[in-house]
């Protein structure tokens, strides 16, 4: 049995009275890539936002049930500490427009007022950008604004920004849906390389993408976890009829 890093038990999530996640029991293995799939509006984003506790900042956002981060109860931790341990990359690249590429990478330190030495900062910027496969493209103009980069580069900058905090897990919400095929391929490669050092949970609409990168896949439907298992098994021999229909393109 491999280690589990994020575990949900009887997880319910609400927006006001609207129940979006119903009784989700999911165990996300450490240092693997887990894809979350399902038709639009089934609660994928909401599930991700439960993991880093952004969900409770939405108007009416409320969680019931349990979430474990390894052995600790994630819901009893300070949300701010949770968010420093679990990074997130959003659907649209969102670098800070007022900051340079350099400052964007260490934004987690700067904005939190964490003091680091100049050499240490240089080191973090370089390794994070290298991990995000962006270093070679930007190393000569680190002090230009991050918003001058292309969409795909911006998204990799956002990944670097999340990695700079040395997160235990990285949540990716459709990270390539706003990108062209080339940038998408680039980011997929990158995700696979990252899994040795960080657990990755990725929401995707693209069945091909899940097949290419994910070790495990979870299929959500109308807020319920329908099926979860190794991607290959889930794709080749789905147990649930709804999974099969989704994969064959009947809905979604």
């Amino acid at each position: 049995m491999e280690d589990k890093i994020l575990i949900t038990e009887k997880l319910y999530a609400y927006y006001g009275e609207h129940c979006v996640l119903k009784d989700v029991n999911l165990e996300i293995p450490k240092f693997k890539i887990t894809a979350i799939m399902g038709p639009s509006g089934c609660g994928k984003t909401t599930l991700l936002r439960c993991f880093n506790r952004l969900h409770e900042l939405s108007p009416g956002g409320r969680i019931e049930g349990q979430i474990w981060l390894g052995k600790t109860n994630l819901l009893s931790l300070n949300p701010i500490m949770v968010r420093r341990k679990i990074g997130m990359v959003f659907q649209r690249p969102n670098p800070f427009p007022t900051m340079s590429i350099y400052d964007n990478v260490i934004a987690g330190y700067k904005l939190n007022g964490i003091k680091i030495k100049r050499e240490e900062a240089d080191q973090i910027v370089e390794t994070s950008l290298k991990k995000a496969a962006l270093w070679n493209e930007v190393k000569d103009f680190l002090h230009r604004k991050g918003t001058f980069l292309s969409g795909g580069q911006q998204q990799r900058l956002c990944i670097a920004r999340a990695l700079a905090m040395h997160p235990e897990a990285l949540l990716l919400d459709e990270p390539t849906s706003a990108l062209d095929p080339k940038s998408t391929a680039h980011i997929e490669e990158l995700i696979i390389e990252l899994k040795d050092s960080v657990t990755i949970v990725i929401v995707t609409h693209n069945i091909g993408q899940a097949g290419r990168v994910a070790d495990y896949t979870a299929f959500l439907y109308l807020g319920e976890l329908v099926e979860f298992g190794p991607t290959e098994r889930l794709f080749t021999a789905p147990k649930d009829k709804r999974t099969e229909e989704y994969l064959s393109g009947k809905f979604g």
Binding site: N52, L54, L57, I80, M81, V82, R83, R84, G87, M88, F90, R92, N94, P95, F96, P97, T98, A107, G108, K110, L111, N112, G113, C158, R161, A162, M165
Partner: peptide, 26 residues
Amino acid sequence: PYTLKEASLALGVPYYRTVLKVILPS
């Protein structure tokens, strides 16, 4: 854009610092 605020919050930046250091400068 709200996404900017989320970017900051997701890095574990407290709300008041997000307003002062991200929203206001933008």
